[in-house]
């Protein structure tokens, strides 16, 4: 943990988090004097999701996402907690940088969305062309900015002006167009129970009710079936490549383990204390168990990739594990829906 003095003399406490967007949102709210944990933001902002997008390619391969669209968690959490926020895109990089400087000079910390490739403080092997990394800009330094990257380091970092401009205005899929966001004011005593209920119901809706078979529980089933067929359809090399891509989305991008499933379990646990509900605690335990299966899926996949699909671990087994996850998650979100409807705000 490290602290920094902002432009107007306030202190900022840097804390680490598992995921960039939830960590950044939590830090922005804490900075406004409203202490809220990362899993709580994740739950209230309905971050948990699954989607397989065969048409949207990233690095030439389809995207499988374990979370809702980037930016949505912040928007939803802010709305449900009654915070007034500013979110701005820019067409002109110069204007975007000027506005960032103007705001941080007033002592307000600002979150920006960046492209990882252009951030030179990132480890070499993480630097892929991915336009969705969030970090907080604290204040200006001599030749750049002091930034706090909760998902990356346990201390604050320096980032040059040049890096910052390129990273914010990089062109590519899902480009950030210089997105910057910060809360203007945060309600110090929001109705946490109501916010949690809205968040949980919305999560259930996202996972169960989207009538397209690529999203939610249906999406998991769809991908599981595809995985089982991959070795016949694509050949072993390509099948391993695609499987590794799925596991990367599950584990590499700072998910807190098991594609956000553990983080959601942590949220359910915190909510169960808030509502003093043993049922929610039970669901948290079930979510943990599902997360363990997701981890097993990752381990099995790694073995398949290592042995190039020769021996006992097969694509059918990996797909089967994912099928189990789908079945159990479907039951979990149905139960959650019933439990939440009985809770009182």
């Amino acid at each position: 943990m490290s602290t920094e003095i902002l432009a107007n003399g306030r202190t900022y406490i840097h804390r680490t988090s598992a995921h960039c967007e939830t960590g950044v949102t939590s830090a922005l709210f804490c900075d406004k004097g409203f202490d809220i944990s990362e899993p709580m933001i994740f739950g209230i902002g309905s971050g948990i999701f699954f989607g397989h997008l065969p048409f949207v390619k990233w690095a030439g391969l389809p995207i499988s996402t374990f979370r809702s669209l980037p930016g949505l968690v912040f928007k939803k959490a802010a709305k449900r907690l009654g915070a007034k926020v500013v979110r701005k895109h820019f067409r002109n990089p110069q204007k975007g940088m000027d506005e960032l400087r103007r705001v941080i000079r007033t002592g307000q910390i600002v979150a920006v969305t960046t492209n990882v490739y252009w951030l030179s403080y990132f480890p070499r092997r993480y630097r892929f062309n991915f336009n969705g990394h969030n970090l907080i800009v604290l204040y200006e330094t001599e030749n750049g900015f002091r930034v706090s990257d909760p998902a990356l380091r346990e201390y604050t970092l320096d980032c040059s002006t040049h890096d910052m401009e390129r990273a914010r205005f990089a062109r590519g899929p899902m480009e950030a167009r210089g997105l910057m966001y910060y809360p203007l004011s945060v309600n110090p005593n929001p109705d946490m129970r109501k916010a949690c209920i809205t968040g949980m119901l919305d999560s259930c809706k996202q996972m169960l009710k989207i009538p397209i078979p690529l999203f939610g529980v249906k999406g998991i089933r769809y991908l599981a079936k595809k995985i089982i067929k991959w070795p016949d359809k694509l050949g072993n090399v390509e099948a391993c490549r695609q499987l590794a891509h799925v596991v990367r989305f599950q584990e590499e991008m700072g998910t807190g383990g098991a594609g956000f499933r553990y983080m959601f379990a942590a949220f359910l646990q915190e909510a169960s204390e808030l509502f003093e509900s043993s049922e929610l605690n039970g669901l948290s335990n079930e979510m943990t168990a599902i997360g363990d299966i997701w981890r097993e899926f990752a381990v099995v996949s790694a073995r398949i990739i290592k042995q190039k699909g020769q021996a006992e671990e097969t694509f059918a087994k990996a797909g089967g594990l994912m099928m189990i996850c789908a079945g159990r998650e479907e039951q979990l979100f149905k139960d959650l829906n019933n439990v939440v409807r009985k809770l009182k705000a």
Partner: peptide, 13 residues
Amino acid sequence: VDELTNRLAFNEY
């Protein structure tokens, strides 16, 4: 596991 999948992608690049 995570290192393996990253290494594949990085080597491919």
